[in-house]
Lab assay of single mutants.
Amino acid sequence: SASLEDVKTAVLGLLVILQTKLYTLPASHATRVYEMLVSHIQLHYKHSYTLPIASSIRLQAFDFLLLLRADSLHRLGLPNKDGVVRFSPYCVCDYMEPERGSEKKTSGPLSPPTGPPGPAPAGPAVRLGSVPYSLLFRVLLQCLKQESDWKVLKLVLGRLPESLRYKVLIFTSPCSVDQLCSALCSMLSGPKTLERLRGAPEGF
């Protein structure tokens, strides 16, 4: 439990870093931090981490990651405290083949985003970082199938509809809506759902 406290501190630090690096160059920093966060949550489900502190780590990670939004130009952003989304000039939600690297070039400044813009690109060529939603999407499927803490599952179920409104997140990387529907149906009809959940409301 003591070591998990250190892990929790590290994860919180990564969330803060991602919130900053999403809007700064090099964009590969945001890509790497995002991948680290998603990989860490995957390990929770792989090794069945069920301690309360592990659940709190997942809760905080999902609470942040499910706020990711994308505009029509595929640029990622996060809402501010007033709910207004600021889109990044440097990070996009497109999935890119590994051989192309985590970044790609664009020939010049991008068109203005639909929300308040981030800082304008400084040079004639900007390297865009790929932060594909499919990585998070796979972890969300694991959550629906394996999550043991009701608070975490409730958060994910509550945030998913709003995330799905931003269709560009889903359609720019390999996210299977069929698998999502299947996971939701299995969660509702499967007898093991109630068996594994802690803290579920009576009558769920």
Rank of each mutant, 00 (worst) to 15 (best):
Y45P: 00
L136T: 09
E195V: 07
S134T: 06
G203Y: 06
F87A: 05
L25T: 12
P26S: 04
S48R: 13
L67A: 15
L141G: 03
T9Y: 06
S148K: 08
L4E: 03
L76G: 02
T193C: 14
G203N: 11
V7Y: 02
L73W: 13
P113G: 11
D149G: 00
S72A: 13
I170S: 04
F87S: 05
K154W: 04
T9V: 12
S182F: 06
L157Y: 01
L160A: 01
H29T: 03
L76N: 03
R32L: 05
P109N: 13
L18Q: 01
L43H: 11
L37W: 00
P117D: 05
C185A: 06
L18A: 05
Y166P: 03
R75H: 08
S107W: 12
G13R: 02
P109L: 11
S189C: 11
R75K: 06
L128M: 11
K104T: 15
L180R: 01
S56V: 13
D6C: 07
L37Y: 00
V11N: 03
A30G: 05
C181H: 04
S134V: 08
Y90V: 08
L51F: 04
G108P: 11
L37N: 00
D82F: 09
F87R: 04
H74E: 03
C185H: 05
E5S: 10
S48I: 07
K81D: 14
P113C: 13
C91I: 11
S173C: 02
P112K: 15
S182D: 14
P191I: 09
F204V: 10
A125G: 12
A30P: 05
Y133R: 03
L51A: 07
L12F: 13
H29W: 05
V38W: 04
A27T: 11
S102T: 14
P112C: 14
F137S: 03
A27W: 09
E147V: 00
P89W: 04
G108Q: 13
R138F: 07
L78Q: 04
T106V: 13
L76C: 12
V156P: 00
S189N: 10
E35C: 12
S1Y: 06
A30F: 08
V33W: 01
A30V: 09
K8C: 07
I170L: 09
S176Q: 06
A30E: 01
R196K: 09
T31N: 07
E147H: 00
C185P: 01
I57A: 01
